[in-house]
Design a protein around this nucleic acid. Sequence first.
DNA 1: AAAAGTTTTGGGAACGTTCCCAAAAATTAT
DNA 2: ATAATTTTTGGGAACGTTCCCAAAACTTTT
Lengths: 337, 337
Amino acid sequence: MYSILDVAKLAKVSKSTVSRVLSGDSYGVSDKTKAKVEKAAKELGYVKNSLASSLRTNKTKTILLIIPDITNNFWAEVARGAQDFLEKHDYSLIMVNTDWKSDKYNKYLELALSKGVDGILINSSTSLTSKLNNIDLPIVLLGNAYLESHFPRVGSNTLEGFNEALEFLYKNGHTKIGVVASHTDTVGGKSHQNKLSIYHTFLENHSIRFNKNYYFSVGYSMEGGKELATLISKMENPPTAIIAGNDLIAVGLINECRELNIKVPDDLSIIGIDDIPISSIIHPSLTTIAKPKRDVGEKAAEIIIKVIEGQPVNKNYKLPVNLVIRDTVKKINGDLK
Amino acid sequence: MYSILDVAKLAKVSKSTVSRVLSGDSYGVSDKTKAKVEKAAKELGYVKNSLASSLRTNKTKTILLIIPDITNNFWAEVARGAQDFLEKHDYSLIMVNTDWKSDKYNKYLELALSKGVDGILINSSTSLTSKLNNIDLPIVLLGNAYLESHFPRVGSNTLEGFNEALEFLYKNGHTKIGVVASHTDTVGGKSHQNKLSIYHTFLENHSIRFNKNYYFSVGYSMEGGKELATLISKMENPPTAIIAGNDLIAVGLINECRELNIKVPDDLSIIGIDDIPISSIIHPSLTTIAKPKRDVGEKAAEIIIKVIEGQPVNKNYKLPVNLVIRDTVKKINGDLK
DNA sequence: AAAAGTTTTGGGAACGTTCCCAAAAATTAT
DNA sequence: ATAATTTTTGGGAACGTTCCCAAAACTTTT
């Protein structure tokens, strides 16, 4: 591996000049010597030692991505989006997984300090904010969260999508619409309430009477979907449509409906939230509120670079979701009350 | 951020002593001073500057992971396995995606040099070996490959699984067994042949006559599976079981069978290869040869650390696959003709 | 109690950059 | 032609470690 001094010797200039040319703007270097240096560098196949550079400049052009689990497609998409953007701006990405275990955060935060990363992209978790405050580094939070913090955050506008889904069902004749908002929804604080308040506003707008049985609380998993199917199968006045808490619930619901002989979408229309890969493949394929996962990653990367460069950024970015219409919603002749 | 000198001053020792204590073995440091140093470091909240350390030692404790796409669950699992292992040994992982584009490799290989990573984990691609030879860094290849190279490789023993699947079908009464080995299979060289030779050996062992119509060649995608279903539906003497080239084909096949009114597994038993997340969720859930994706990542990480440390390693690691029995294979009374 | 040996400690150099400042060279003004 | 100005170049210091070597502080031996 050649150093800047080798290049300097070959080009017959000083290391300072080589540095000026090779580290970017080459301000104050004549075109002639610039060409000489570039030729010499190329001839030797010089590649810069980022470590030395970083040590001097205090910039590593590296971002630490802290996510729960890269194996979860949601986070993989976010990571991919972030990496694509960062790469374009010559940043690298170090990835770690927490499995939601809070003790891991300390470790990774120290890693960030030790490696001297220029910024941290991290999923927003309730237990975290206090720790983050002690870190003197640019930080951008990933995903929606319901707690306040002074860090910029990039998430998606799920509530808008939720409303869109309600309206879509209404347009298709549904008035008996069930919604899922589980206990886990309340953990963060406000999401649950907001979802319900949107639901109530929707009902009022369309003069539909609230039926408390149409509000379901199940776990955010396929198991929860299965439970949901059982619940619905036992109702004497079941909803004709349901907006699941996420796609996992929806998929579990679809599968269990087959067992319970509930026809989807003939007996029950279903809308999910997320748009995970399975949703387009399962039969019938799932109509769902697609979260802009990759965009979230990209935007977060964009924001953190801005923060690093000292540019002003907003505190909250809510990226638009997108209702993907597939096969789990049926147009019916709604018996309008 | 405090440096080693701040710690030294507080502990009233020299920086050398601090370095000795804080960089590991603290050989030749008395217990008393060691305690002093550790106390001082803790008091200041000292965290080591890895950049400076790496510059001096020429070790970064960082591995570069080059994969096609983290969004593909297979690679996400591999990445996760690698990261988990590396983390335990205090290595970090930088991740990049190539999308199979060969021009990206040059870029990433230079990145590796510039950042001074200690090793590279990279998916084995045909076009790549020549480039890799120019790199003076520990390299471990990920996944099966059909070309020779002097780098250690970690893959899975798919052929053994293929054979196991054949025997499993036979045990369940199947003798009319279709297999998929597409054109893409031949690209690398030998896999295709081996798959077929195993198939032939199997047939001979059980005195089953070879039917060339039971050998299918379709694309390795859901589209390919759809095509396969159409092909089979038109046969006058169709197979009773089929081993798809991978799970994607199998899933496409399952879905299209529904359309074509072929009952799975009653009319057609199906076995996939890979065990992707969808396979356990689709209905009927797919019996498949599960690849040890995470193990591959872990093993590769283990191997590269060994290489870095100068320990001897084998050239080829083939991790065992595992036949996951789910719902797409039916026991029949085979007409043992 | 001095010599020899061993353990523990400290100071300087080095890793490869970038940055600062001054010197040299080239250009323009007088 | 010389002075003043601007452009271009070079040398040294610094970033925070680790490593080498020598000095200092202890132990043991005679």
